[in-house]
């Protein structure tokens, strides 16, 4: 088997580009917070499909359903890629197409291409510590809307249009095949403009510009990984640093406080017959939230690794020996 990617020490397992549909109410796409790097000159790309839906949601802290929405569902198809500039430095992108609809009531479905996300990922540290290997990663990201989709039509809007800068730290520890990864992300979100000239939050604003609360994202994942398989459990949390609650029987607004905690499982299989090809799948379930839908999601995707230089391949082969 040719190895076109690397994982620290245990090294040789294909990349996972996991897309976690974290905020299904806004169908916000979150790309991977994993502890895997592409080797130099290798490019992993693939598509991922995610389906999420919710019937219950939290209006502030009040959990309810809404017969005028029924079940709100989001389908997302994302294209993503990860390129190894060096073994320790990767660049990544993702771009999703999102389609939202409701099963009851009159609100029109919405769909479109949402935000382009770009990341730079750097691994400054990788050492044997105790019985296993410790590695650290830093990820800087930027995302922005690439189409003129509507933000101010929640829960039908496919996104909230803010331009986000994210800074993420990842710690990974691995003993033999057992791994644990923890990450924390700060997301700075730009103001957005909406189609109306005034809006009410907890007070009146005579502006078409809306201040978006920044957010923190935490993730912990643990499981088993080998050259061919990966299985892990994931705990995720998204917490906005400010924002306001949806008042009773009101509509949601992009600058609402939106918090959620989800549990999930994820898996990956590297196809034996086709080198560089992997299949991933998994799901998430929201266990707590505020001003978001209690979503359940499933996803699946196919990824392939392309090596751009023969030289790089040779180098890897040599490394293996």
């Amino acid at each position: 088997m040719k190895l076109l990617f690397r994982y620290p020490v245990m090294g040789r397992i294909p990349i996972i580009c996991i897309l976690l549909s974290l905020l299904s109410i806004t169908a916000m796409a979150q790309t991977d917070a994993d502890a895997i790097m592409m080797e130099k000159n290798n490019f992993c790309t693939g598509i991922l499909y995610n389906y999420s839906s919710w019937k219950n949601y939290w209006e502030g802290t009040f959990k309810r359903d809404n017969a005028n929405l029924g079940t709100v569902s989001t389908q997302m198809i994302g294209v993503m890629g990860n390129y190894g500039i060096s073994d320790k430095l990767n660049v990544l992108f993702s771009i999703p197409y999102v389609a939202n609809k409701v099963s009851a009531g009159q609100l029109h479905k919405m769909n479109g291409v949402q935000d382009l996300s770009l990341w730079v990922k750097y691994m400054p540290f990788e050492k044997k510590v105790g019985p296993g290997t410790l590695s650290l990663y830093g990820v800087a990201g930027y995302s922005f809307p690439v189409t003129n989709y509507v933000a101010d039509f929640l829960p039908m809007s496919i996104g909230v249009r803010s331009k986000n800068i994210s800074i993420r730290g990842i710690v990974d520890y691995q003993i033999k095949n057992w791994t644990a990864t923890a990450s924390a992300t700060y997301v700075n979100r730009s103001n957005i403009t909406i189609d109306r000239v005034s809006y009410y939050t907890t007070e009146m604003h005579y502006a078409n510009e809306v201040k978006m609360p920044d957010a923190m994202q935490f993730q912990f994942r643990t499981g088993w990984r080998s050259d061919r398989f990966l299985a892990e459990a994931v705990l995720s949390n998204w917490t906005t640093m400010s924002g306001f609650d949806i008042t009773k029987n009101n509509m949601p607004f992009p600058s609402n406080k939106m918090n959620m905690t989800a549990v999930g499982v994820g898996g990956k299989y590297n196809v034996k017959a086709a080198d560089g090809l992997s299949i991933i799948g998994g799901g998430n379930y929201t266990i707590a939230g505020r001003n978001v839908g209690q979503s359940t999601s499933v996803y699946g995707g196919v990824f392939y690794i392309i090596s751009f230089t023969h030289k790089a391949k040779e180098k890897q082969e040599n490394t293996k020996k």
């Binding site: 800068i165 730009s190 103001n191 502006a207 510009e209 201040k211």
Partner: peptide, 12 residues
């Protein structure tokens, strides 16, 4: 970062 730094709203 400079580009997307938060600005105060221009409330007319």
């Amino acid at each position: 970062i400079i580009h997307s730094c938060k600005k105060d709203l221009n409330e007319v």
